[in-house]
Write a protein that binds this DNA or RNA. Sequence first.
DNA 1: GAGTGGTCTAGACCACCCT
DNA 2: GGGTGGTCTAGACCACTCA
Lengths: 234, 234
Amino acid sequence: MPDANDRLTYRDIKADIMARIQNRRWGPDQVLPAEVELAASYGCARATVNRALTELTDEGILERRRKAGTRVRAAPLRAARFEIPIVRRQIEEAGAVYDYRLISRAECRADAEPRLGGVFAAGEPLLHLHCLHLADDRPFQFENRFISLAALPQARDAAFDHLGPNEWLVSAVPYSEVEVSFLALGAEAPVTTQLGVEPGQALFCMERTTWWEGRTLTNVRLFHLPGYRMTTRY
Amino acid sequence: MPDANDRLTYRDIKADIMARIQNRRWGPDQVLPAEVELAASYGCARATVNRALTELTDEGILERRRKAGTRVRAAPLRAARFEIPIVRRQIEEAGAVYDYRLISRAECRADAEPRLGGVFAAGEPLLHLHCLHLADDRPFQFENRFISLAALPQARDAAFDHLGPNEWLVSAVPYSEVEVSFLALGAEAPVTTQLGVEPGQALFCMERTTWWEGRTLTNVRLFHLPGYRMTTRY
DNA sequence: GAGTGGTCTAGACCACCCT
DNA sequence: GGGTGGTCTAGACCACTCA
């Protein structure tokens, strides 16, 4: 019995269904009434119920199969959504002054580091950049980036001394396919000197690889200061 | 020009719009035609276009405001979805045999560790558990958990020697509110001995705090082996 | 004020897949 | 075979917010 005389929205229905699940009126693995029945009992159109149920399914609370019906997931399949921050915006939103420095810029081949073997085509020419992102003049994030010169030859003409490679890439090739990983790495040179941390210190690292039409464009490892964490609620 | 004579689905329309954005036919910050016009040009109902545009907005590609219309986000707001794994299922899906061991079980107060101050109510009685999750008899994940005995007194009666606390909690209080963090921590005792790693070794850690009706139920830190990473694509 | 997206309705057809 | 969810349609009203 959710609302009063007013018409129900799909949000009301979502909330009501969620409440029934939390109250155990609809327990784990239990099959819910069919959409038509729910629509009748809520006094609304089937499409409205459908939207509520579809969203709860996307959120991992329900499980739906044609003919089998809708049931409450016994172990809710929880998925956390993390916004992938753009470092400049991240720093500025924290009220600090963003600054950027290019530390080094060199060309190399894809076999320079063993881990690049699985990322780029063998022997492909790469641009290798080390960059530092600062918040209020203090190191905030160290960037170790490789850009494929085979896929993006125009990167050779970009200096990257004032515009960071991320912002350059977003304007050159937005909306590409991306793989993101979070991992923990012990600090090694040159991260240690740039971030001012001890060797071996545990650092939170975000690694990102970007493709465009099947070709690897860039791979980057972003190293954060000790204590950094990514957080979300659900 | 997406399909042939067949009726268009909202997926076709999504794909077509995405393609136009990638081809720069609709560049960054450009305003798209209104829903009614798109519907006319695709030869379908407005609701179908609406669903496509709504999903692209949720995915961070578009930005919509009433009256202002729909525009292409200049810097696509990317959000990555990570499934929060249940360790037993994670191990079994990798084709390994799951095993669980309770390492220690003790009662303490919320001031036992300084970091618990911000999580539990001051001085609250807690159950402190150390657990090990194994894959094929090898350590896979170390669990350092605190459970509020004020909020969950029935935890006192659970032995946790065969059923892990996560599975116990899921059956006791499913569908609660959760905050998840990913962070990097240097290994310390007792993690070092349980996972068999050197002190200071960088470990990927997932921390999770769970509430129910405003009270903190549990806080857990899950430590993974070196090299562990969480990955997703978008 | 007026144009846009947000949502609901009532009806329909179909694909899937359980029994 | 038949019941279920997935999707589309055509129309409608409303809330927001820009100019």
